[in-house]
């Protein structure tokens, strides 16, 4: 772009950029945005550019990793002893529960054999670590250090020790992006563990709040009720803790009760996460053969409630 030398430009000159070029670039940007919004090609591009993108992610995470390593190095012994004791207690508690669970599992197996049920609830899990970078403070996404090379696929539920964290929405060769359950665009089918009431928990955009906007007004929900995944929608397997009801109020129309819940998972802390490997079986009859040209029964249509917006 030609620029006249500064001494010739008056202080109030209108600069040297032409409005035409602005319009052309704005139009180009808008066209790209619309195409991408409709088709979601960004992930494809990111996949192609993963040679650049992934190292950038790792490089940006370096400072916080250094800080974490430094903190560990200078942590006082008493702090470590405390942490050790807390972890031992948690382990003990988990062991006790596990022992009780194994009896229940055995019983369950017997009953299932009696009922001749084929399906198995065995869970395959993968460990992944959070890469500590910040994609956008107003969207709750985290980057994990496992990708398609480690056989991660879009839609895998992400868990931590306390509950459901979210689900994988993008996969690159060695990293993947997960959407947290508190993302404003996320919804997860849940069930009140005490009563079995099914509803949907929406993300609010704040890291410690979930919203349950449409509970029937006559429903039996109390403050302190635990929410677990209901397994509907075929995305999250049933029975994992999601959160705890904090408050209940009527919504504006007075037709429904709206509840606010606190996520069970430690969403704001980084560390190791679990990725469930076996996606739950979609509900309903099996997908018909494509050759039959059947109109209904597509499993992807069923899995949308927990899926991408």
């Amino acid at each position: 772009m030609p620029v006249t030398s500064p001494d010739k430009v008056s202080l109030f000159a209108e600069g040297t950029v032409s409005t035409l070029r602005l319009i052309v670039y704005l139009a180009a940007a808008m066209i790209i945005m619309v195409i991408d919004h409709r088709g979601g090609y960004l992930q494809g591009f990111r996949n192609m550019a993963s040679l650049v993108v992934e190292p950038a992610y790792r490089a940006a995470a370096l400072p916080s990793e250094v800080v974490r390593a430094g903190k560990l190095a200078i942590a006082t012994q008493s702090h470590l002893v405390d942490e050790n004791r807390a972890l031992k207690e948690a382990l003990l508690l988990a062991q006790v529960r596990l022992n009780r669970m194994s009896a229940l599992t055995a019983q369950n197996d017997r009953l299932k054999q009696l009922l001749d049920v084929q399906r198995d609830l065995g869970l395959g899990v993968q460990l992944a670590q959070l890469i500590d970078i910040d994609l956008d403070p107003f969207r709750h996404r985290v980057v994990l250090n496992a990708g398609s090379v480690q056989a991660i696929v879009v839609g895998q539920p992400v868990l931590d020790a306390f509950g459901v964290m979210g689900q994988v929405v993008e996969v690159m060769p060695n990293t993947s992006v997960a959407m947290l359950i508190t993302d404003p665009a996320h919804a997860i089918p849940v069930m009140v563990a005490r009563t079995g009431l099914r509803t949907i928990a929406y993300g609010t955009g704040s890291i410690d709040r979930l919203q349950l906007p449409n509970i029937p007004i006559s429903a039996d929900v109390k403050v302190g009720d635990a929410l677990v995944t209901s397994g509907l929608g075929g995305r999250f397997p049933a029975g994992f803790p999601v959160g705890e009801v904090l408050e209940i109020s009527n919504d504006e129309s007075g037709m429904f009760a709206a509840a606010v819940a606190r996520p069970a998972a430690a969403l704001d802390r980084s560390g190791e996460v679990l990725l469930l490997q076996d996606l739950p079986q979609p509900m309903g009859p099996p997908v018909p053969e494509p050759a039959l040209q059947a109109p209904a029964g597509d499993s992807s249509a069923i899995s949308t409630p927990g899926g991408r917006p």
């Binding site: 602005l22 670039y25 790209i32 950038a56």
Partner: peptide, 22 residues
């Protein structure tokens, strides 16, 4: 590509910004 959610969002923002500055 690195940070955004929709391809073209930051392109539009930066074009507007740089245009005004120039």
């Amino acid at each position: 590509l690195l940070i955004g959610q929709v391809l073209g969002e930051q392109a539009l923002r930066l074009v507007v910004l740089v245009f005004i500055v120039l």
